[in-house]
Amino acid sequence: MPTIRLNLLNCIWAIMMKDGLCEFRTRYAVSALFMFALISLASISMSIGAASLPADLTAALLWVLLFFCAMAGLSRVFVQEEESGTIIALQIYGSGQAVLFGKLLFNILMLLSLTMLIIPLFIIFLNVDIYHWPIFIVVLILGDIGIAAASTITAAVVAKTQGKNALFTVLTFPILLPQFLSSISATAKILMNVKPDISDILFMAVYNVVLMIASSIVFDYLWYD
């Protein structure tokens, strides 16, 4: 018996849980991400020794680290489906919008969990003081959502190409750049004990919304022939 209108939220949730379950069983991306982050942080800390870095450099390091972690692990949502061949079943039975938002949600959660693990290490290894925790958390969340949103749609773009992973970084960076720069500047202000303007936070939020809407509009062209 065919159903006419799929329950979108239900489908989004199902897709996110499925990705979560597969990831939990294989730990394919999560371990790579975490090890990458740990090694990068440790090597930076080892190289600078006891010296303390200026606030803007520290802020830049944090977001560069998160960016490259994302590049290491977030393309999995579409690339692995394509490589293992499961994408066809998903194309037949799953609607485009549900797939996009389900996988977007999964990437957001993965990046947020990774950030929660990295921030304590970041504070310890690089000896930083966070003066405004609530705003810092807001900046982290908005920045992570931005990285996840850009990564998810770009992952869909590269899924059917050759040379996927190298291409993934090249394609994501220009799209992510506005969010990247504003996250760095907001974090730098926080580390210098200055509260970022509300306009900075608003900019990041608007970017996320616009990117998600654009992804939604454009995704059907990628998903369906």
Partner: peptide, 19 residues
Amino acid sequence: ISAVYALLSFLTVPFLVFI
């Protein structure tokens, strides 16, 4: 696919001009 990417990168330009 390249048309999609052209659109996505085009949409980020206003943000870049601002930030």
